[in-house]
Design a binder for these strands. Structure first.
Lengths: 112, 112
DNA sequence: CAAGAAATATCGTTTTACGATATTATAGTA
DNA sequence: TACTATAATATCGTAAAACGATATTTCTTG
């Protein structure tokens, strides 16, 4: 049961979900995967990661699928996939805004 | 002279610079412009906007170009353009990551 | 010259990021 | 088995950001 809503994804959260989209991983392996995928551009520190994991879990985007000793492995949920997709769409719109503005400047006009 | 470094742009900051990229505007008109450009998806509240404007100014991304009564009009600087462009590049990479992953899943492997 | 509107400023709360450091568990090795 | 190193996770504290509500200042207009 989701404790809290969560309707936006921070950049770190986005990459965590991206990592889990195709496989189940533990926290440390998520860090490695994201590092590889982004060629080091996105580096999740432990503080960031382990703040994020419980939050994503509580809000129903992930769940723990196994625990071996200290190692906890996570799986993305359907809700998590949906939120990830929503964020993809948001990003695409942002880039579209950016590129539209690059091609042709939209002048200011009062109101819509 | 820049007081502070600023090497990343939040989403609101990004849209503020986008607005000023093509014209000089005052705060309230920035809000209107961004609203139009994003069809209401990005709504800058006063708290967000007027926290951001001094920060962008102090860090040398903007400067005030005129003040009529209470209305302050801002202009983007070369440095501001450069940071905006850098953020565009970052966004494009993020979308590229996302689309690469969509096309073909990158499996986890230890280390690079 | 009031009354309202427009633009900006301030305040307080909540959330987030993130490094440093601590804790816990596993594996290896003498 | 005990000892050590390492891997993985957890906690703490600080700093920054977002943002709504509310206040202030200036301009307009009747």
């Amino acid at each position: 049961m989701p404790k809290k809503a969560l309707e936006t994804l921070s950049e770190p959260m986005f990459y965590v979900l991206m990592a889990l989209k195709g496989q189940n991983l533990c926290g440390a392996d998520i860090v490695t995967w994201v590092n590889n995928r982004t060629q080091g551009r996105v580096a999740l520190g432990p503080g960031t990661l382990y703040t994020i994991l419980p939050k994503l879990t509580e809000s129903g985007m992930l769940h723990e699928v196994s625990t071996e000793g200290r190692r906890r492995t996570y799986e993305i949920t359907e809700q998590g996939r949906a939120l990830y997709e929503a964020e993809c769409a948001r990003l695409r719109r942002q880039v579209a805004d950016m590129e539209a503005e690059e091609r042709e400047h939209t002048p200011f006009r009062k109101e819509a």
